[in-house]
């Protein structure tokens, strides 16, 4: 079962290979590092879940896995992690199957979910402004803040795609993983560490922790 989960964003500017003189992602790295440290302390094993998008241009590991590795490094967590990649275009059904499989473990798994929201939240955003962003992001961020896995499972894949919200699939994997044991235990304690959209992309740093 899932013992704890962290939702962390995917700004590539936190990566050492994209370091600037300033550190524009510093506050997000700090918050995400606290979140991953907290959930790793709750898990017997650590799974990192990120969205993958095939690219004809490079063979790098999915950026979300690299971002998560940076958060773990910043947190001083030096443990083996199992990387899991879900296609950014995976259907909700595929996400549900993957989430159920991830949660079907005897011990307590710490799940680090690299996921964020619309990249179209303003004229300077990567995808410019799409007013639908605010409603979409309200839904998923409120769902995470309330520990509401059903609301995450119901996210609209088409809307997410339209809004460049690459975190939709990982969030739906999380929803299914959380749902697996939901009938047998109280809902998780939720801690929201940070929320914002500094670069026109909706970020959230939060943890879900189930009592032992």
């Amino acid at each position: 079962m899932i013992g704890a989960a962290a939702v962390v964003p995917e700004p590539l500017c936190v990566l050492p290979e994209y370091a600037s003189l300033a550190d524009p992602g510093a506050s997000w790295r700090d918050a995400a590092a606290r979140a991953v440290a907290a959930v790793c302390a709750e898990g017997d094993e650590v799974v990192v879940l990120a969205a993958g998008t095939p690219s004809p241009h490079h063979s790098n590991a999915p950026a979300g896995l690299r971002v998560a590795a940076e958060y773990l490094r910043a947190a001083g967590v030096d443990r083996p992690v199992e990387p899991v990649v879900v296609g950014a275009d995976a259907t909700p059904t595929q996400c549900a199957a993957l989430g159920a499989a991830l949660a079907d473990t005897p011990g307590r798994t710490a799940l680090i979910v690299v996921a964020d929201g619309s990249a179209r939240r303003g004229p300077r955003a990567p995808g410019h402004l799409d007013e639908r962003s605010f409603a979409y992001d309200d839904v998923w961020r409120r769902a995470v803040a309330r520990g509401d896995h059903d609301a995450l499972a119901a996210l609209d894949a088409q809307a997410a795609d339209d809004l460049l919200a690459q975190g939709r699939a990982p969030l739906q994997v999380l929803a299914a993983a959380a749902a697996l044991d939901a009938a047998d235990r109280p809902p998780p304690a939720v801690d929201v560490l940070a929320e914002g959209d500094p670069f026109g992309v909706a970020y959230l740093v939060a943890t879900w922790t189930w009592a032992r």
Binding site: S55, H57, H58, N60, A63, P126, G127, H128, L164, Q166
Partner: peptide, 21 residues
Amino acid sequence: TGGVTPRTRPHRVEYDDVVAS
């Protein structure tokens, strides 16, 4: 442009070798 649609901005684009591309 890496094959992007006109009037879009880059979002998390990466290349093995941008110059070679």
